[in-house]
């Protein structure tokens, strides 16, 4: 144990707490994930390739990717407005609204799923209006986008809020006193300052949407090739006892989320450097 320590410490308990955390981490997370890797590796390369590039799998990547992208874009747009409004303006009920932004975190996904379906299906409150406009929301790709927008919203708002709070008002004042219009100031000063946070929020919301299951399966109608997301396809393979196939698809999905995670990490490091550079 002592060998691991870089510096001697006055405080006790390193051995035991390090031991507990690494053991628990291995048992709960690492070994089961290794089982996934082992299972997919037990497939022959041809079989693996055939599973992950079957037309149904490709269609599921497509809908998962595009719907997550659309949801993340909607969130980036409306989430920015919401974050700006919550930080900069004062209006009655602001605190409640601020707390409600986290509802998608706190609400079980199955509940969000049936609630959104109830609203957006053809006899629902909004579904009826949309249907009269000729738009089919629930049981169509649009439904997947709705569910993924719902669950991703807090990520954009919560990463943008501190960035907007950090903006130095004096910079804005200086720009205004030098004759810049408000729009010019937002475009040339505020937007570049919050851009790293916006990108991070966008990527987090996208990543969360890719893996989402509970809220989507109710509203999407789960039509193969049309509204079937990849996590659902994994669950279906499991129900058919095709463990190898499920593992292969899971490996593809995990690969995608890790790439995204790396990207987010890079963004965060970039934004820290950006802020440091600005401070000097």
């Amino acid at each position: 144990m002592k060998l691991l320590l870089k510096r001697r410490s006055l405080l006790p308990g390193f051995g035991i707490t390090w031991g507990i955390s690494t053991t628990y981490l291995s048992l709960v997370v690492l070994i089961p994930l290794a089982a996934l890797a082992a299972k997919s590796a037990s497939l022959s390369p041809e079989r693996f390739w055939e599973t992950v590039t079957s037309p149904r799998a490709l269609a599921s990547y497509r809908i998962s990717f595009l719907a997550s992208l659309a949801g993340a874009c909607l969130n980036a747009l409306f989430g920015s407005i919401l974050a700006w409004v919550l930080v900069r303006y004062r209006f009655p009920g602001r605190r409640i609204v601020d707390a409600l932004v986290d509802l998608p975190f706190a609400l079980p996904t199955a509940v969000s799923g049936i609630a959104l379906t109830a609203i957006y299906s053809e006899n629902g409150w909004l579904g009826g209006i949309l249907a009269s406009l000729g738009i089919r929301a629930a049981f169509a790709p649009a439904g997947v986008v709705i569910a993924l927008t719902f669950i991703g919203l807090p990520f954009v708002v919560r990463t943008l809020q501190p960035a907007i709070e950090d903006i130095d008002r004096e910079v804005e004042e200086a720009a205004a006193s030098l004759g810049a219009s408000r729009w010019k100031c937002i475009r040339l000063i505020i937007f570049p300052l919050v851009r790293p946070a916006l990108l991070t929020g966008f990527a987090l919301s996208f990543a969360r949407a890719l893996g989402e299951y509970g809220s989507v399966i109710f509203i999407s109608g789960n039509m193969p090739m049309e509204t079937e997301i990849t996590p659902l396809l994994i669950a279906i393979k499991l129900e058919q006892y095709d463990y190898g196939g499920a593992a292969a698809l899971a490996v593809v999905m995990l690969g995608a989320s890790f790439l995204l995670l790396l990207f987010i990490n890079f963004l965060q490091r970039f934004s820290v450097r950006y802020r440091l550079a600005e401070g000097t």
């Binding site: 996934l36 893996g211 989402e212 509970g214 996590p231 994994i234 899971a250």
Partner: peptide
């Protein structure tokens, strides 16, 4: 970073 379905799997 792991989808809930994969967590079960």
């Amino acid at each position: 970073a792991v989808s809930p379905v994969i967590a079960g799997l």
